[in-house]
């Protein structure tokens, strides 16, 4: 605790840095994965190729990816952008499959009904597909948020600042308290973001609250995500 008090501003800086890398990476992942999932949903053949490529990408270890990206894109190794791109690639790879599952989970009869009522294509997407697939999508987003926040720490190994610096610095200088602080704060960031996501989810899908049936459906979606 005394270590933390003595180094409050440094820890706070690293915490902010951490969030500034994790949040954009997650946001980019969501947009890219929804687009890819939608593509895969509409064109099965293309989808199989895209999803195969993303799962292959996911098997590339993180640290090597951080070293390859700067060469391919000619950006500096020690830049936030490098880490954000790497994390966004992983997030997209992990979420694209869930996004496809999410769109498949929408009852086609509901879509047909909306079409029969005269909704446009865009209208069906915004008012039917997206809201109804949102619960499954959200469970996937929660998974990638937690893993992204934890993975940001790897950047410290190549010199990209985040809470990971508390881990490497604590190790090099032999300060247990610093490492423990780094671990606890990383988990805390993940938990806080996760709680925020759950709250946002409850806000935008009000029909899923209250009734017991909604509750059991919600549980089913969550289990699907854990195993996704």
């Amino acid at each position: 605790m005394t270590w933390l008090e003595a180094n409050r501003s440094y820890v706070l800086d690293m915490l902010l840095q951490h969030v500034q890398i994790a949040v954009p990476a997650v946001l980019i992942s969501i947009v890219a994965a929804v687009a890819l999932g939608r593509l895969a949903w509409r064109w099965r053949r293309v989808g199989a190729v895209v999803l195969g490529a993303t799962s292959l990408l996911y098997s590339v270890p993180a640290l090597p990816l951080l070293i390859v990206i700067p060469v391919v894109l000619s950006i500096p190794l020690r830049s936030d952008l490098n880490l954000i791109i790497a994390l966004a690639l992983y997030g997209t790879a992990l979420l694209a499959g869930t996004a496809l599952d999410a769109f498949r989970s929408v009852d086609p009869r509901v879509r047909e009904a909306a079409e029969a009522l005269g909704h446009s294509r865009a209208g069906i997407w915004w008012k039917v597909d997206l809201p109804l697939s949102f619960p499954v999508l959200l469970s996937g987003i929660r998974v990638i948020t937690v893993s992204t926040v934890s993975l940001v720490t790897i950047g410290a190994l190549v010199g990209i600042q985040s809470l990971g610096n508390l881990l490497t610095d604590g190790f090099q200088r032999g300060i247990h308290a610093e490492i423990v602080t780094g671990i606890v704060l990383t988990i805390l960031v993940a938990v806080v973001l996760d709680v925020l996501l759950v709250l946002v989810g409850a806000l935008v899908t009000p029909w899923r609250r209250r009734t017991p049936r909604a509750r059991s459906r919600r549980r089913a979606d969550d289990t699907a995500a854990v195993s996704a």
């Binding site: 720490t153 790897i154 990971g164 881990l167 604590g170 423990v180 671990i183 990383t186």
Partner: peptide, 22 residues
């Protein structure tokens, strides 16, 4: 099973590694 899977995902690998290293 569910709890360990979720918890371990949140723990930064590097943290585990450096702490055990110390």
């Amino acid at each position: 099973v569910v709890a360990t899977a979720g918890a371990v995902r949140a723990v930064p690998t590097l943290g585990l590694l450096t702490l055990l290293g110390l």
